[in-house]
Nucleic acid binder design. Structure first.
Lengths: 197, 197
DNA sequence: CAGCTTTGACTGAATACTCATTCATTAATG
DNA sequence: CATTAATGAATGAGTATTCAGTCAAAGCTG
C-alpha cells in the first residue's frame, strides 16, 4: 500500500464496524473482524481509534452529525411549529429507517452500559430533545397546543414514541419500511398536543 | 456449607446479581463478583444457573412475573377501560420506580444484544403490549377513544412514552421519584386517545 | 535526473491478560 | 456411612492492544 488519501481508511473501518456490530453485537465483534472486513490490519485500527469503544462512539457521532445537519437544513424553511414538528417526526423515522445496520446499533447496541448511555444521552440526544422542546414551546406560546404540560416533558414523550417505533421496526422481521408509520405517528402526536377541552 | 434450605441461595444470587450488574454492567460484572456478594462460592452459581446469561434472564423473569401478577390482580376490579389504562400507567411507573438497581437492568442492561432483546420482546413484553392493546381496543369499541389508529399501534406508542420516562429517570442523577410523573403521563396519554375533532 | 536518505503509514504475530466454567475435594446430614 | 450441597483453585479459551519491522513514496543532493 503506497500512501493513499488518508481518511479513507477511517471511513472504511467505521463502515466495516457498522456491518459487523449490527450482525454480531458489540461484544460479539472482535477488532480483528472489523479489520478484516475493512481490509486493513488489526493494528491499523489503532492508528485511527484509541480503543474499541471509540469506534462505537465515532459511529454514533458520524450518524448523529448527519442527522442534525439534515435536520437543521430542512427545518429552516418551515413556517410554523406544526410544520416543523411534523417534519421532525418524518425525518426521524426516515433517517433511522434508511440504514438497518445503523439502526440496530443506535436502537440496540448503543444502549450498552449505564455510563455509556448516560454520556450519549446527555450530549447529542439531549440537544435533539431540547430542539424538539423549543418547537413545542413555540406551539404552546401561540395557542396551538396544550399548555398544561411542560414542553420538555412533551418532547420526551414524543421522543419515546419515535424511539419505540424505531426499536419495534428493528426487531420486527417483516420487511416493512419505518417511514410507513410516519402518518400514524404524526396523527398520534398532533392528537396528544391538542388543547384540553 | 452443606444442606441449608435450598432455594434461598438462588434468591441470594439473583439479589446479588441485581446489585452488581446495576453498578458495573453485565459485561463489567464477573461471576466471581456475584458469588462473593451472594456469599457463595463461584461454583455454587452453576448449581442454580447453567451459565452467566441465564442469571440475567432469570432476573428479568422474576421481575416480570411479579409485575404481571400484580397487574392482573389490580386490574381485575376496575370497571372501565379508562380506569384500567390509568392504572396500567401508574403501576408501570410505580413498579419500575420501586427498585432503581432493577430499573437500571431493565432499562439499560437488558437491551444489550439484538438476539437478547428480540427474545425478551417477543415473549414477556409482547404479552404486556397485547394486554394494553386489548384495553385500548375496548375503549375504542365503546366510543371513548379515537378509532382512526390501530389499537396495537396505540399500545406501542403508550409503551414508548412509559419506557422513555423510565429510562430518563434511570439516567437522571437527581433524586426524584418516577411515580411523580404519573399524572403528567396519564394526562398525555388520555389526551392522545381522545376522539378526533 | 539517478541514486540515496528519510519518513511514517501500515502490518500482524506476540503479548498479557481476563474470566466463565469445571471438577476433585470437603463437610454436613439423615 | 452414603449422599449430596457446596467449595474454590485450576484451567484454558478468547481477545484487546502493542510494537518491532516493512516498504512505497517523498525529499534531497550533486
Amino acid at each position: 500500500m503506497p500512501r493513499p488519501a488518508t481518511g479513507r481508511k477511517k471511513e472504511a473501518i467505521l463502515d466495516a464496524a457498522t456491518v459487523e456490530i449490527a450482525a454480531h453485537g458489540y461484544h460479539g465483534t472482535t477488532v480483528a473482524m472489523i479489520a478484516r472486513r475493512a481490509g486493513v490490519a488489526d493494528g491499523t485500527i489503532y492508528l485511527y481509534f484509541s480503543n474499541k469503544e471509540e469506534i462505537l462512539i465515532s459511529l454514533f457521532e458520524r450518524a448523529m452529525d448527519l442527522f442534525t445537519a439534515q435536520g437543521a437544513r430542512e427545518l429552516a424553511g418551515l413556517p410554523g411549529p406544526r410544520e416543523r414538528l411534523v417534519r421532525i417526526v418524518e425525518l426521524h423515522l426516515e433517517l433511522v429507517g434508511a440504514d438497518r445496520d445503523l439502526a440496530i446499533i443506535t436502537q440496540v447496541e448503543l444502549r450498552h452500559s449505564l455510563h455509556f448511555l448516560d454520556q450519549l444521552s446527555r450530549d447529542r440526544v439531549g440537544a435533539y430533545l431540547q430542539a424538539m422542546a423549543a418547537v413545542i414551546a413555540e406551539g404552546q406560546a401561540c395557542g396551538l397546543w396544550r399548555c398544561d404540560l411542560d414542553a420538555t416533558f412533551l418532547a420526551k414523550a414524543v421522543f419515546g414514541v419515535l424511539d419505540e417505533m424505531a426499536t419495534d421496526w428493528v426487531l420486527s422481521r417483516r420487511n416493512t419500511r419505518l417511514q410507513a408509520r410516519a402518518d400514524a405517528v404524526v396523527g398520534f402526536v398532533l392528537g396528544s398536543l391538542r388543547p384540553q377541552a
